[in-house]
Amino acid sequence: MNREHDREIVRYRAPTRINHWIVAISFVLAALSGLALFHPALFPLASLFGGGPWTRILHPFIGVVMVVAFVLLAARMWRDNRIDARDRAWLRNVGDVIHNREENLPEVGRFNGGQKLLFWVLVTCVLVLLLSGLVIWRAYFSQWFPIGAIRLSAVAHALFGLILVCSIIVHIYAAIWVKGSLRAMTEGKVSYGWAWRHHRAWFREVVSARRRAD
């Protein structure tokens, strides 16, 4: 092993990365097709899916793929996303986070307070989108529900879809903002310095071999 390789940590192994990108791709497709049906100004997005009827047909199936893949990914991640007192302190100092003053923040484990908050927002959104989406899936399920439930589900699906889209914009921006993060999800590795700077407690655990890299 060369020295350069030696100073890297595996952050996400290949199965996790593949799982993440299945969620990501299905999310982008579900979001584009969903937005096409959400606002007239975005209806032209339906062309990407072969027109309006194909958009209507495909959107729920893409959504189901996303939910299944997300559940598998969340099952890998949830243990590291339990919010504790350190995370709450981290979240209270969001000003330091935004201004890149990490030296003022509590030490961070595998995920920081923001990532954990995002995780649980995503879990909530996906759950609501799944349930409301089934209710408004006219071809197969709507006939089993009263009209009031369908109307509530339609508005809930739109609102939680919007929350999800905005949350993922934050997620994507965070990867652009914190350099080295994207590589963790593409090639799987981060440098020692990256781990020490952003996730010091996790860095210590991995380097001292108290936990396996994942």
């Binding site: 890149n100 921006y173 652009i176 903002w177 080295g180 440098s191 020692y192 310095g193 781990a195 860095f203």
Partner: peptide, 27 residues
């Protein structure tokens, strides 16, 4: 999306530098 853009041009990215790498190695 615009808030993210403003943050990037206003405050800027968070980069790991040589100092971090040296400290990490020492640790």
């Amino acid at each position: 999306a615009f808030a993210g853009f403003l943050h990037y041009i206003g405050i800027g990215p968070n980069r790991t530098d040589e100092h971090d790498e040296r400290e990490a190695e020492r640790e």
